[in-house]
Write a protein that binds this DNA or RNA. Structure first.
Length: 569
RNA sequence: GGGCCUGUAGCUCAAUUGGUUAGAGCAGAGCGCUCAUAACGCUUUGGUUGGGGGUUCGAGUCCCUCCGGGCCUACCA
């Protein structure tokens, strides 16, 4: 039994995530976690809300709440939605936890001891009206290049020219609109990533099986221009982890907090500590190679925008500490999911958000479509028509109808009990060998985290059931050879259980419904397909389940299409 | 501006990393079946692999060029 540590990129706290966020990290991570558990491995699947930074403070201010209260509320909202989506985290933590405070300060302390932190004095724009320093992109003004009057301090969206905030003509705060700005001197800590450049480079070179997307982004940052640059890891904010050197004060850094991208990945570890504290488990055997984590396989899931921080900054933190922390073994990254010809947009409310998705359909519909269309090789696109067609065909017609036809046929001919009699013939042997071949292929794709291919193979496994029924035709054989029909039906009912087990990572609720109808809790993985198909013996009682997947009608599709095209109300 | 990714059938995607005649699913067409959510099965029509040039015995795959889409570019996260 292997031990698998799985983390999903941390969803940011300032609101409910859209389906594009979901499919890029949490959902495929959940797929993998459920699969690995199903195969009998020991899995620790962690996720948390990422709660620090300017956007959290501003969102709280907008909501008229203290930021700590706002974050606590939004954490619960996200935790609830995650639960309803079937995301099977072993722990859903918070980057603002005491554990993360301690650990983040610890890392900063040892990095400083190891000479990997330097202090930099720099000039930043301060807004007196807002009472805060402004990140570059929170400063607006007129572009000196093209005259666009809503250019941001980092870049002009109109002419794409990169800017410094001081380049802007008539600069103003993007938060309040105030022009009462000044440039102030402030001191910050920088993580000396450049010192570990060669180590990181060699480390990335060993990762030959990572997605090209992952390694190419890492290499770009390592080699571009002067190579990997040091990175500021502190900010002048109120909300965050106070800058301390371990448990000591950090002279000159009073009132400052760590940068959210420094503390967020550390929460992967702190989250395990939160989990351990809540459950009485030991977290170090998952994270410390000197305390039992040597045999752990660690897999991270994230959207492509997160890659530099996970391939460079966080590894710098871990390597630079000189302590025996578990490093990531596989980093699965995803492109973006677009919505009907454009991007999902949180600010414009464009697209479907997780809560809305669950309001209109059960999680399994979304899980199946999103995973079977995961943006692995390039950005992919959500359209309502494609969603309706895929879901109706795959879930309702192929899988749902299979369950329906075999259970109803059995009920009408043999009653709601697995029928006795008959023995396998050539058709059954053919089915067994096809299923064996396909299940092994499915395992291979799942092991490799090839999400789309896994979904394709699973669907083919469902189709095999319909093909079998068509060729076996129990509705005909029952007339001449009732024993043979009984065997065929018994096999069909066992296929339902098999499908429930294989499909659970994709569609856990439907899987549970299938197991419930088959009146079994045997979720044993089909290492041997013939054995797996004799799990439900003759005489075993079952029930005919409700329709597993109702079809999406044209009226529904049109309604939703209109409802989600505009601004979220 | 620079870097990276990407363009394959009407749609969504494959193609064992340069190797036979580019494959699946959906949609379309035809046939079969009648247990089933008008479901299922079988057969079948669709491709100048964005355009052009090159390397090679051989190119969807490598090189050059042009066109289109996307991402990143270090103080949003």
């Amino acid at each position: 039994m292997a031990r698998i540590l799985i983390t999903s990129a941390l969803p940011y706290i300032n609101g409910i995530k859209h389906l594009g966020n979901l499919v890029g990290s949490q959902l495929p991570a959940d797929l993998f976690a459920r699969y690995m558990r199903g195969r009998g491995n020991e899995v620790l699947f962690l996720c948390a809300t990422d709660e620090h930074g300017t956007p959290a403070e501003l969102a709280a201010a907008k909501a008229g709440k203290p930021v700590a209260e706002y974050c606590a509320e939004l954490h619960e909202v996200q935790a609830d939605i995650a639960r309803r989506f079937g995301l099977s985290f072993d722990h859903f933590g918070r980057s603002s936890s005491p554990q993360n405070h301690r650990l983040t300060q610890h890392f900063a302390g040892v990095l400083a001891e190891n000479g990997l932190i330097r202090e930099v004095s720099e000039k930043q724009v301060y807004s007196r009206a807002d009472g805060r320093f402004l990140p570059d992109r929170y400063i607006e003004g007129t572009c000196p290049n093209c005259g666009y009057d809503k250019a941001r301090g980092d870049q002009c969206e109109n002419c794409t020219k990169q800017l410094d905030p001081t380049d802007l003509i008539d600069p103003r705060s993007a938060i309040s609109g105030s022009t009462d700005l000044e440039v102030r001197e402030t001191k910050h800590l920088y993580l000396r990533q450049s010192a570990l450049r060669d180590d990181l480079d060699k480390w990335i070179d060993t990762k030959t099986d990572w997605p090209i997307l992952t390694t190419s982004i890492a290499r770009k940052w390592l080699h571009d221009g002067d190579g990997l640059q040091d990175r500021g890891i502190t900010r002048d904010l109120d909300w965050g982890i106070p800058v301390r050197k371990g448990d000591q004060d950090w002279p000159g850094m009073e009132g400052k907090v760590f940068y959210v991208w420094f503390d967020a990945p550390i929460e992967y570890i702190a989250c395990a500590a939160e989990w351990a504290e809540a459950t009485g488990n030991d977290w170090e055997r998952w994270w410390r190679t000197d305390k039992g984590a040597g045999d752990v396989r660690y897999v991270q899931f994230m959207g492509k925008d997160n890659v530099p921080f996970h391939t460079l900054s966080f590894p710098t933190t871990l390597l630079g500490s000189g302590e025996p922390w578990k490093m990531v073994d596989h980093l699965k990254s995803f492109n973006y999911l677009n919505y009907d010809g454009g991007q999902f947009s949180t600010s414009q409310g464009r697209g479907v958000f997780m809560d809305q998705a669950l309001d209109i359909l059960p999680a399994d519909y979304w899980r199946w479509w999103l995973l079977s269309h995961a943006p692995e090789s390039s950005d992919s696109e959500f359209t309502w028509e494609n969603f309706q067609q895929s879901v109706n065909k795959d879930l309702a017609d192929v899988l749902g109808n299979f369950v329906s036809r075999i259970t109803k046929f059995c009920r009408s001919k043999f009653g709601e009990t697995v029928p006795d009699g008959g023995a396998y013939g050539a058709q059954e042997e053919t089915l067994l060998s096809e299923l064996t071949r396909r299940i092994r292929a499915y395992e291979g794709h799942m092991d490799a985290m090839e999400v789309r291919k896994s979904a394709q193979e699973l669907r083919a496994i469902w189709v095999a059931g319909n093909e079998y029924l068509q060729s076996a035709a129990p509705w005909s054989t029952i007339k001449e050879d009732p024993d043979r029909a009984a065997m065929q039906v018994r096999l069909g009912l066992n296929l339902i259980r098999l499908y429930a087990v294989l499909s659970a990572p994709f569609i856990p609720a439907a899987s549970a419904a299938m197991l419930g109808a088959m009146n079994t809790q045997d979720t044993g993985w089909p290492d041997d397909v013939a054995d797996a198909l004799s799990t439900l013996p003759a005489g075993h009682a079952f029930t005919v389940p409700d329709v597993l997947f109702a079809k999406i009608t044209d009226e529904q599709r049109e309604d939703w299409e209109n409802r989600f095209s505009g601004v979220r109300s």
